[in-house]
Each structure stands twice: as structure tokens, then as C-alpha cells.
Nucleic acid binder design. Structure first.
Lengths: 155, 155
DNA sequence: ATAGTTTTGTTGCATATGTAACCAATTCGG
DNA sequence: CCGAATTGGTTACATATGCAACAAAACTAT
């Protein structure tokens, strides 16, 4: 039978139910909202914020270390760090024992910005998750981790 | 006490546990894998594929309609459609009752490509979800929908 | 020592994407 | 009807991003 959906023996495909599509939409919606907020209130992009978050938590590190902890490639990290240096939020000094490496550390100003963003970020997360019960949050967390593990394995 | 994590009274923030970060990583991992596959096997980008999917399912439509059904903005849709026209997968004819509107329809060639991609897409989705049980898939689906609903509301 | 390889990070180029300006067709208000 | 606002879609420009080539430093192994 010929229905409103235009299929003559065609395989049926519903984009709006397709997991990669839905994941992409949700992640982009969330990311864009956060990006606008960080940009507006702190003048930071998301890559910059990720670098700040890692430096703020783990202390001085080299670009390669930041790459691993942020899942960003080295080009993105390099550019984000250079913008942060321009803004005076971090500084970099050569590692004397290996002068290819530049050790980046957060500045006092950077620490101050970092400490202002963290509560905003956590509040944002809380707001997103506020639609779920505690049990649902835990479950979503668990499923996300499971998916992430296999996504990386296959990719 | 001063631990390995570099915090002196600083708010603690764990990037790897931050939901927006995790969502972004997972969505990008999945999207990139799919994008490579569609590009390699069918020469389509993801925006192009979304347009094809909607035309294939709902039949001829105008760009504005495609925008709504794909959650892409009109610039992206315009560009994707023009590339599809260049490739001969869709064609466009002016709507005589409103000559601003261009009605896009899938061609025979486009339909053939569409019908080849759909099983590949579904198989990809199946593989991603293969780590979850049926019940978990249903639950993840439900939670995703809940999150999506509020994300759009707030955003 | 020294040539070849690996590591670290940057730069160049090509592509992707969003915002805003824009053009053309249509509708709306009087 | 006619000028103003609206709508459908494209183009221009500014950014963002990924890949590959690169330069410099440091290893490796003879």
C-alpha cells in the first residue's frame, strides 16, 4: 500500500529516531548553549575552557598531556593554548630537560577565571539533568559510559 | 591537604565526568565514523544524507520543510541540496503557485543510492547499540528523549 | 660521533559552518 | 492597487577545524 510516507518497497528510515542523529542534535544543542555562555561571560571557547579545566585540576602540563586529557588533537590544543596565553590566563615555559616541550601553567588571573566558571558549568549540567530523577541520572551515566567504551573500540 | 590534583581550595571539576563533554565526545565519535563511511562508500556528507533521508521518506519538499525535518538551518540545507543536484541525486523545479519556492524531489539515481544507504545506516546504529541489552536500549532511548525535550525548551 | 627515526608542537591549506546581508517573490495594510 | 513588511533561498564573509607538511629537539643504534 502507498502511504503518506513516500515508499514503494523502499527501506523505511526515520531520521528522527536514528540514534546518531539524535545524539548529534542533543550534543550540539547543549554545546552551543554552553559555548555562548562561556563566550559571553568569560570570553572563552569550549576548547579553551577544556584546557583551563585540565590545568586547573591537574596543574602544569605539556600540550601532549592536555591532548590526552581533553580528547582534542594537538592542533586544537596548540591553538587554544596560544589564545589563552594571549589572554594571560596561562603561561608557558620551556622544559629545560627537553626543550621541545612547553610546560603550561595557569596564571593567577587564569585561576580566578577558572574558579568562576566551574560553578557555572556545574549548574549548567545540573539544569540539563534536572528533568531526570537521581536513579535515571545514574542509569544514563552508566549507559553513556558503556556506549562510549564500545564507540572508541570500534572507531 | 595538597593532593596530586592541583587544588588549593579550588572548586573541584572533573572534565571527564562532565555530561556536556561526554555527550560531545560520544556524538563526535559516532558522527565521524559514519561520515567517513558515507563519504567513502556513497560520496555523501552527513547534511546531504539527512536531506536524502527526508526526501526518501516523505517525498518532494521545499527547502523550508527540509529544514524543519532535519534540524539544519537553511544555509546548510541550501548547500547540501545544491551539491545533491550537482550529483544528480535530486532535482528541483519551481513551484508555479509561489515562485520563490523550489520543490526538490529525489531522482531515480538518488532513490537507488538512498536505498543502498539505509541498511548501512541501520546496521551502523545496531552495531553501536549492540553493547546494550534490549531493555537498556529502550531506557536510553527514553532518557535521551527526555533530555532532548528539555534541552530544546531551555535553549 | 652521526645518520636515521621519533617526538613535540606549529603552520599552511582546504573544507565546513554560522551570521548577516542580500535578492526576488509574495503578502499585508491602508 | 502600492509601498512596507515577510518569506524563501543564496551569497559573502569571518571562524573553526582537520589533515598534512614542517621545523626543532631528542633519542637510537651503530
Amino acid at each position: 500500500m502507498s502511504s503518506a510516507t513516500h515508499d514503494r518497497d523502499a527501506p523505511h528510515f526515520a531520521l528522527e529516531a536514528f540514534l546518531p542523529y539524535r545524539l548529534s542534535i542533543l550534543a550540539n544543542t547543549v554545546s552551543n548553549a554552553i559555548a555562548r555562555e562561556y563566550q559571553g561571560r568569560f570570553g572563552l571557547t569550549i576548547p579553551e575552557w577544556r584546557v583551563m579545566a585540565v590545568l586547573g585540576r591537574f596543574g602544569p602540563d605539556v600540550a601532549t598531556g592536555i591532548c590526552e586529557r581533553t580528547a582534542m588533537d594537538k592542533v586544537m590544543v596548540s591553538r587554544a593554548m596560544n589564545r589563552l596565553i594571549d589572554g594571560g590566563l596561562v603561561n608557558r615555559s620551556a622544559d629545560d630537560s627537553d626543550r621541545r616541550r612547553g610546560i603550561t601553567r595557569i596564571t593567577r588571573k587564569g585561576r580566578s577565571v577558572h574558579d568562576k566558571i566551574v560553578p557555572v558549568a556545574l549548574e549548567h549540567e545540573r539544569r540539563i539533568l534536572s528533568t531526570l530523577t537521581t536513579a535515571e541520572i545514574a542509569e544514563f551515566d552508566r549507559l553513556l559510559a558503556k556506549l562510549q567504551a564500545t564507540a572508541f573500540t570500534n572507531g
